[in-house]
Design a protein around this nucleic acid. Structure first.
Length: 838
DNA sequence: TCCTGGGTCCAA
DNA sequence: TGGACCCAGGAT
């Protein structure tokens, strides 16, 4: 830290205070006094270390610096400043506050999801020997013994102390040692981020001249192993022709990982100084090199160009534009051109995608165009990788970031454009830990604050977005022509009831579908089979007594996974072995009911024994690169039939896929949820979009259903988005659902069912007093009424957009929820608040 | 009498 | 959230 002389801050005299965000779930900032020596250096967004409570030390982020001393208490001093440059930008602090405020959570919680854990401000207590301690006479024998143990280690947690010493009940000794200042309690605050370093070796500079090098080699005649190493170094590094190349050296692993070289000879050379060892910091993303061979200017078709121009025009009067483009219309090219234009103007671009692993193909294309400027932010990335993207955005290395919903929290300072692709996707909404935010909505707010524009793109927009586009709040651009004149696929509805009657069904497959798959195989084309349920079958049931395998923690049936002969709960992850006999009546007639991807895969292997069949779902893609490898396999034509869950519905682009089979459409349509029809439309349209992406042949989509005359299916097969929209929006209006209202869902949880219900009822009562029966619905048990042993009750609050003051209503709700949480007769009750829960 | 577990409160 | 502090009840 350099001390500025003559800075005009006038720092020496002023007393500053800092309001800090601390990692505690308390909805307030904490004011600390800034020591004068760091006055010139402290900045909003920097991390600091502060004492908190009696014996604790925590890290926090500076949210505000001011000169107003607190009146009700004495501010304590900040202990240490961790960052010279702010880690969090002022823009981010504002955005975090907005999110906390809007979604009813604490800023600390927002910070928790926003920061990669390598930068996070955690607080895990550790104890450490106090090196300044000298009053040994004050210690009891017990204390002295324990202190000796603790001295041996750098630092220990409470549990570690117990383990090392092999005794329990030592907390009181630790406590008294702390009291006597023999040991100190501290929170781990050091940065966990480790840059990736590469160990390299280079030849001592002396040998860069030809004569010296020859002489060295001659000298090593007596040490053939060492000579061999030098010779291969010279052959790898063209030191004689390009002397400069020696500076870059050669990776040490080149020698250590090749058995032909002797490790001891290498270390001797290093010890003698003939070779010098050094380390370089490398980016974890260095392996994907930019490829300009295709040129950066992607040529747009006439239709794409028109959409592009319209978007630019609309941006002049609107901050948000919705691009409605059918599947395969080439929205990506439009995005890329827009991004290039924004980047050229010097602004940053954020490109949001749902679950990025699912769209590696897009990432590869972006990487080709944008090269090193592109940062990738993804949930499967390690923490260090995320910290690198974070720092890359701060340093300006990444002008463009493609990422999942949490990428919205990155420290941009001059955003020009946010693209939200597949904006209708539900994975943009975070459900479980707070903040329960929607990345698309946060993107719109974030853009406003940076004077940036937002482009929402989808083949099947969310009803809310389409509504805003029609009523003029958003700009609206359509791209209704497939890229390269490819046709939209042809749809066939297969009546499974009829087929079953005439005994044409083979297991879950209709004869029509089997024939089409066979024909596709004959033509050497690829097929996709879609079933939005993983595992082997839905559940196990006993034919004799009706027993069904259920989770012991949640109110759901267990899914049968044949591969591991296991029953698994898809809610809490509970696993158990498949029982040999029915646990209810010891009968052997336990059968599987329903079907998932695993079962379809098995059946396909029976129908088409020679076909190459692959399955893509959560179970087969857990490993970091499994997804990527599978995609490459399909691209190279090593797969004939791909079975998968919704994972295969998004953004994949395989030219050779001609046939798509859709199973269980009825379950999607009749799922008891307000959005089921909209979701079914979106999902089936998205999957069908995988078919027939070539101009020279038409794809076929076969949908198996028990009732082909359902309205929504007709809309799907005629690709009638607008028809679907009109139907659904009418319902929304009738029943007062978004976009005509805003919904807030309160979930009341308790281990005891009666108390859960009591709490929920009491909360409902409190809310009804002011809000009225039209606005408060419930309490009712949700679809899955018990999760991880806790009973749930939902209360749904509907607020009209015009009539209700949203802020005031939320404040009221928060107040009543707090009443319940602090009610002593309802101990153990937990309530979560989900704003805009749909 | 000491120890432990549970509950409550509070942090600047 | 974590920890300090207090109280009650069990082990010693």
């Amino acid at each position: 830290m350099q001390i500025a002389e003559n800075d005009d801050f006038g720092s020496e005299e002023i007393t500053l205070f800092a309001d800090l965000i601390l990692p505690v779930p308390v909805a307030q900032l904490f004011t600390y006094r800034v020591p004068r020596v760091i006055n010139p250096f402290i900045k909003n967004g920097a991390r600091v270390v502060v004492p908190f409570g009696k014996n604790r030390v925590v890290t926090g982020v500076v949210a505000k610096i001011h000169q107003t001393p607190p009146t009700k208490y004495q501010a304590r001093y900040i202990a240490e400043l961790l960052d010279d440059e702010p880690l969090v930008t002022p823009y981010q602090i504002e955005l975090f506050h907005w999110i906390a405020d809007y979604y009813l959570c604490t800023v600390g919680e927002v910070l928790n999801v926003a920061l990669p854990s390598g930068l996070k401000i955690t607080s895990q207590s550790k104890i450490q020997y106090n090196p300044d301690f000298e009053y040994y006479d004050l210690l009891t024998e017990e204390e002295a013994n324990l202190l000796e143990e603790i001295k041996k280690y750098q630092s220990l947690t409470y549990e570690e102390v117990e383990k090392r010493v092999g005794a329990t009940n030592i907390n009181h000794i630790i406590k008294s040692l702390i009291g006597k200042r023999a040991i100190i309690l501290f929170e781990e605050v050091k940065e966990k981020y480790k840059p990736k370093v590469l160990k390299k070796v280079k030849l001592n500079g002396r040998f860069e001249t030809r004569e010296n090098l020859m002489e060295l080699i001659a000298q090593l005649d007596k040490f053939p192993k060492q000579q061999e190493i030098i010779m291969s170094y010279v052959s790898q590094v063209p030191i004689q022709n390009v002397p400069y190349s020696n500076r870059a050296g050669l990776e040490k692993s080149f020698f250590t990982q090749n058995e032909a070289f002797s490790d001891s000879a290498l270390s001797t050379l290093i010890k003698k100084g003939t070779l010098e060892e050094f380390e370089v910091t490398v980016s974890r993303f260095a392996d994907v090199a930019p490829d300009f061979s295709e040129g950066t200017n992607i040529h747009l078709t006439t239709a794409q160009q028109r959409a592009f121009d319209e978007i630019i025009t609309q941006f002049q009067s609107k901050d948000t534009v919705l691009l409605h483009g059918v599947t395969g219309s080439g929205k990506t090219e439009v995005y890329i051109n827009l991004a290039q234009q924004v980047l050229a103007s010097g602004s940053q671009v954020l490109f949001l995608l749902p679950e990025i692993a699912l769209t590696t193909q897009i990432v590869v294309r972006l990487k080709k165009v944008f090269g090193d400027k592109l940062g990738i932010y993804h949930s499967k990335f390690s923490d260090n990788e995320r910290v690198e993207v974070w720092k890359g955005v701060v340093s300006g290395q990444f002008q463009l970031v493609v990422g999942v919903r949490s990428a919205i929290f990155l420290p941009f300072d001059s955003l020009g454009l946010i693209i939200v692709d597949e904006e209708h996707e539900s994975s943009y909404k975070q459900y479980d830990p707070a903040p329960r935010y929607h990345a698309r909505d946060v993107a719109i707010v974030a853009a406003q604050r940076q004077q940036a524009k937002v482009l929402l793109g989808s083949a099947t927009p969310a009803l809310e977005s389409y509504y805003q586009a029609l009523n003029g709040r958003y700009g609206f651009v359509q791209l209704l022509e497939r890229y390269g004149k490819a046709n939209l696929p042809e749809f066939v509805l297969i009546d499974t009831k009829k087929e079953r009657k005439s005994k044409k069904m083979k297991f879950e497959f209709s004869s029509v579908l089997i024939n089409e798959l066979q024909e596709a195989l004959n033509r050497n084309e690829q097929s996709i089979v879609f079933q939005n349920r993983r595992g082997y079958s839905s559940y196990l049931q006993c034919e004799e007594c009706g027993w069904i395998g259920e989770c012991e923690n949640c109110a759901v049936s267990l899914t049968y996974h044949q591969k591991d002969a296991e029953l698994r709960c898809h809610y809490c992850g509970h696993k158990e072995k498949v029982p040999k006999l029915c646990p209810g009546c010891s009968s052997t007639k336990v059968r599987t009911v329903g079907f998932g991807t695993e079962k379809l895969e098995d059946q396909l292997k029976i129908f088409f024994p020679t076909a190459r069949i692959a399955r893509m779902d959560l179970d087969t893609t857990r490993a970091k690169n499994a997804y990527k490898e599978m995609i490459e396999d399909i691209e190279q034509g090593n797969v004939d039939i791909l079975v998968g869950t919704q994972m295969i519905s998004k953004g994949l682009d395989f030219e050779n896929v001609s046939t798509v089979g859709v199973f269980d459409a009825d379950r999607m349509i009749h799922f008891p949820d307000l959005r089921s029809a909209e979701r079914a439309f979106q999902l089936i349209t998205q999957v069908s979009g995988r078919a027939g992406r070539r101009a020279d042949r038409k794809g076929r989509v076969l949908i198996q259903t028990g009732n082909p005359s359902q309205k929504i299916l007709q809309k799907i097969i005629t690709n009638d988005y607008i028809g679907m929209y009109e139907e659904e929006i009418k319902e929304r209006e009738n029943f007062k659902y978004p976009p005509f209202t805003r919904l807030i869902k309160l979930t009341v949880k308790h281990f005891d069912q009666t108390t859960a219900l009591q709490s929920a009822q009491k909360l409902t009562q409190l809310l009804l007093e002011k809000m009225g029966e039209d606005r408060v619905l419930g309490p009712q048990p949700p679809l899955v009424e018990r999760i991880r042993n806790r009973f749930l009750f939902d209360i749904l609050i509907k607020l009209e957009r015009e009539k209700v003051n949203f802020r005031a209503a939320k404040a009221f709700i928060l107040e009543k929820v707090t009443d319940i949480l602090t009610d002593k007769t309802l101990k153990g009750t937990d309530v979560t608040i989900d704003v805009d829960c749909l």
